[in-house]
């Protein structure tokens, strides 16, 4: 529908209104709608692998724009396991038709079991074999959340499934990742980060990304520590001793120095709160290594009792301001 003039949209609106038995006012509204839809709709397929659906739930927490605006004005969400009305064979047919048509953006939520392939199937088919052709045909791929971006908890030490990130899955299938894959980590992904990334894709643009992590620099450039509202306590060496205390949360286990994300500015859930403001140490949920090592616990209370796999410096990150 690209390349039509305003006059043509008005004509289409009028004939559509006539077909539906509607009046002149409706015809103009329909023309506006047609024009907007023709310009902006990018097809999006959303697949869940080994996920908890937390990133889908987080996506629904978007406030401006709200989810209905995203679904009706920004993108065309052709398939989503939790939201779609369709189900069963009809759902699988919709999915394969969309893949054949091409011209879509793929959102992946969750990790992909590359060794124990039965550990995640959709419609009876292993995701590890279902996914590569869908990745190959996609114009852009958004890995939503830390599981899809870096493997996350399903890929943590001790897992039996060979859970892998989207990047590993693409590399294994020989699909180029450059200018195609965008990693949006976070456990869950921040709704505004995901929606803004989709806005880039919907407008046929590719955001600036970190060359190694493939995370959009607009959202993942700075660490929580760099922009922390409790940074002044860190500088003054005033540390919280127990949960609920004022002070820098580093000695309780805060991983702000290792977590690159815009939480300090964006905050969470329409800006009502976020981890540090609530006195909760950052657990580093956007970090590549999030939750991966058994000997790298979130909290430091236990480190006096059992062996850990880090030095003080490892928790401070590459830069040490003290």
């Amino acid at each position: 529908m690209h390349g039509h003039s305003r006059r043509e949209f008005l004509q289409m609106g009028a004939s559509l209104a006539a077909a539906l038995g509607l009046g002149q006012k409706q015809a103009i509204a329909l023309a506006d709608g047609l024009e907007r839809l023709a310009e902006q709709k990018t097809r999006v397929l959303w697949l869940q692998g080994m996920s908890c659906s937390g990133c889908s739930v987080s996506f629904l927490n978007t406030d401006t724009p709200d989810p209905v605006e995203v679904l009706t004005e920004m993108i065309s969400l052709v398939f989503h396991q939790t939201i779609s009305a369709t189900q069963g064979t009809q759902a699988m047919e919709t999915l394969s038709k969309a893949v054949d048509e091409g011209n879509y953006c793929l959102v992946v939520e969750g990790a992909i079991p590359l060794t124990m392939q039965n550990a995640c199937t959709i419609g009876g088919k292993p995701l590890a074999t279902l996914l590569p052709p869908i990745l190959r045909n996609a114009q852009a791929v958004v890995a939503a959340g830390t599981c899809a971006a870096f493997g996350g908890i399903p890929a943590a030490e001790g897992n039996a499934t060979g859970a892998a990130s989207v990047k590993e899955c693409m590399e294994k299938a020989g699909i180029p990742v450059a200018k195609r894959l965008i990693n949006c980590p976070g456990c869950p992904v921040h709704p505004q980060t995901l929606v803004a990334t989709l806005a880039y894709v919907a407008n046929k643009r590719f955001p600036d990304v970190d060359p190694v992590l493939l995370t959009p620099t607009a959202f993942y450039r700075h660490s929580v520590h760099d922009e922390c509202p409790r940074f002044h306590y860190w500088e003054k060496h005033e540390f919280a001793e127990k949960f609920g205390d004022e002070g820098c949360l580093f000695k309780l286990g805060c991983l702000g120095p290792l977590s690159h994300t815009n939480c300090p500015r964006r905050q969470w859930n329409s800006g009502v709160n976020w981890c540090i403001r609530a006195g909760a140490p950052c657990i580093g949920c956007t970090n590549e290594q999030f939750a991966k090592k058994k000997d790298f616990p979130f909290y430091r209370k236990g480190e006096q009792y059992h062996a850990v796999e880090y030095q003080e410096q490892d928790r401070k990150g590459p830069k040490d301001e003290t």
């Binding site: 949960f243 709160n273 976020w274 981890c275 403001r277 609530a278 657990i283």
Partner: peptide, 20 residues
Amino acid sequence: AIFGARLPHTTALVPGGCTQ
């Protein structure tokens, strides 16, 4: 989130109560 820092996946919940 007002008491739990954020949702889904609250970080404020701890044994003994809540950090907020």
